[in-house]
Design a protein around this nucleic acid. Structure first.
Lengths: 112, 112
DNA sequence: GCTGAGGTACGATGCAAGTCGTACCTCAGG
DNA sequence: CCTGAGGTACGACTTGCATCGTACCTCAGC
């Protein structure tokens, strides 16, 4: 039973900020926040430079903080940003991350 | 020389989120963000339940992240939120913290 | 029904963060 | 000029966090 997602009212800014303090997790959420179509993505589609186990750990942290919701299909898993919940509870937070994401991409494209 | 405040353009979301991940530091910033008059305050006016040394450590972290600016008067010190800088670089961030601060106060007043 | 890719569980490890003790500094006020 | 409140520097300690190794699970496809 990995379906222990916190309810919208139970979203805690402390847990969320702690989750976003890690660069890898912040990158995931920023990438999700920047894509307004909110597709369901796979864990490895983010290309995190860590092992499988560490990846599991990070996504578990993100789920526990309430930033993402995941769907277990057995041998595959789906990740989706809880945009509506977060926007309702912490309006502007995702915009900040999306803005930072585009800033980072811009800087990456400027270098040779 | 404790005047090593980062420039506005150098404000880093990672450092800021990491600074805000700690409950004590978040409380300080939330309290500052909630007071739109932006007064200069002293360190011990926040009543953090930690020792002097730990307090120094937290305020140093906050200064290094660029969230606050401090003024050394020798035997006294002044703290001030860098509201304009933060608003320019991360619009909405302080509003989130201010909202959370009033939420916390509200909950504290409701209990016996 | 075996295999392999994706994912989890548990444990170990290395490092950073938060905390405090001791010692020292700085200045305002008696 | 001594004292005390506010603050810093350095070091030690403890805990938590990110990381990975090994082992195991789940299902799709052959």
């Amino acid at each position: 039973m990995e379906t222990t997602h916190p309810a919208t009212a139970d979203l805690d800014l402390g847990s969320i900020l702690q989750a976003l303090a890690d660069p890898h997790r912040r990158r995931v959420i920023a990438e999700l926040a920047a894509d307004r179509s909110d597709p369901e993505r796979t864990c490895h589609s983010f290309g995190l430079p860590v092992s499988k186990q560490t990846s599991t750990y990070h996504f578990k942290t993100l789920r526990a903080s309430g930033l993402i919701r995941d769907f277990n299909y057995g041998n595959r898993k789906g990740i989706r940003l809880r945009r509506a919940d977060i926007d309702a509870r912490f309006p502007g937070l995702l915009d900040l991350l999306a803005a930072e994401h585009s800033r980072t991409r811009q800087r990456a494209e400027t270098k040779p």
